[in-house]
Write a protein that binds this DNA or RNA. Structure first.
Lengths: 215, 215
DNA sequence: GTCTATATAGGGATAGAC
DNA sequence: GTCTATCCCTATATAGAC
């Protein structure tokens, strides 16, 4: 049953970190939630940071997978949309990482390095996708433009959940907001698309944009 | 001397919050730094939140001022640049607010409401500036495009400092990064500019873009 | 206004019994 | 593997002397 308890601790920690923010959840809270003793929790994990790092490893595996660029053929808009969907689903599942990103990484040097690597991979992936669109004739942009836009894609994606939490008055960020996040990323590349594709995009977008910018 | 001590506490708190993050600075740290007793600190402020709220009020006054849109005439690119500069300088001065934004606002409902108001003002200001550029013939964009781009302007500006801290390996965000942040915001509107202005912009930008995306 | 001393609470973590 | 008990430490906050 050791394995099971360990997993239960990780699952509960993830849920509680996501709900309240990692800094606001103590090891005692986690033990209470599971109905186990704090001592038991510390039998399975060295300390709280150990739990965070294990969860980060899960996250890392999943985001690495989501960032794989299919090399077989030239990408189209649907490919981008699909990949963004995978990435945003992953960010949503591990949103505690993004909620207190700066603080978490500042307190843990190892995680900072690992996250920096993910960002580099993401930048490469985003630029590759856009260069694919250019080669496919769907998009028109110079390498310099692509580099700058890719950086903004990273930024918007990374902080979309935080932005969503802070913008407006809702206390809870809802899973619904993911679609709007994907849309806001697409807005970054829309100006560089061929007219037909841009029109196609704004059709897809109208579903989201209805209540996109109200407060 | 009461007034002076109060101000000294606020100044030291701001510096320490900015340096280490508000959650990582205790009232004892602040008292130690100033060479006063914790009791003295609590004579001047009800609690730590009181200090945070007073600093937030300073920030609020300054950002409100920076967000004022000059109504006299149609804006040009330099006006945008200047306003962004004022806004980014303010964000830099009170960067502790942005470093742990989600957590701080989640823990203090009043601040959440006040920040939401600032965001609404900022969105209005950004959209107004862009509509001004359109009327001046410098920019070409529909109202719908402006609304969406304004939202991304808000997001990039709000989280630029966090992004900068998390991207790459430097521990410290430097004041130098402000220029790059302004540049990344300009990248958002560049695709909608007339050719002449876009060229002008990329000339201004070359100073920043040299080491913009290295890791 | 400022200090010293202290109350109170909570979090992280460990020892040792079972 | 799990629990009970506990230690240590730090943070917030207050009381009362000066």
């Amino acid at each position: 049953m050791a394995r099971q308890t360990r997993e239960r601790i990780l699952d509960a920690s993830l849920a509680m970190f996501n709900a309240a923010g990692e800094p606001n959840v103590t090891t005692n809270h986690i033990a209470d939630e599971l109905g186990i003793s704090p001592g038991n929790l510390y039998y399975h994990f060295r300390n709280k940071d150990d739990i965070v790092e294990q969860l980060f490893s899960r996250y890392e595996t999943r985001i690495d997978d989501a960032l794989l660029v299919p090399e077989e053929r030239l990408p189209n808009l649907e490919d981008i949309w699909l990949q963004l969907h995978l990435v945003f689903e992953c960010m949503w599942a591990y949103r505690f990482v993004y909620r207190d990103l700066v603080d978490i990484l500042a307190r843990n040097r190892k995680l900072k390095l690992r996250f920096a690597r993910i960002m580099t991979r993401a930048a490469t992936s985003a630029a590759a996708m856009m260069r694919g669109l250019v080669r496919a004739g769907v998009m028109h942009a110079s390498d310099g433009e692509i580099r700058l836009v890719a950086e903004n894609v990273l930024l918007v994606a990374t902080f979309w959940l935080s932005f969503s939490a802070v913008r407006g008055l809702r206390t809870e960020v809802e899973s619904l907001d993911l679609g709007r996040g994907i849309h806001q990323v697409m807005v970054l590349i829309a100006p560089f698309l061929r007219d037909a594709e841009r029109a196609h995009l704004s059709t897809l977008a109208s579903a989201y944009s209805d209540d996109a910018t109200r407060e």
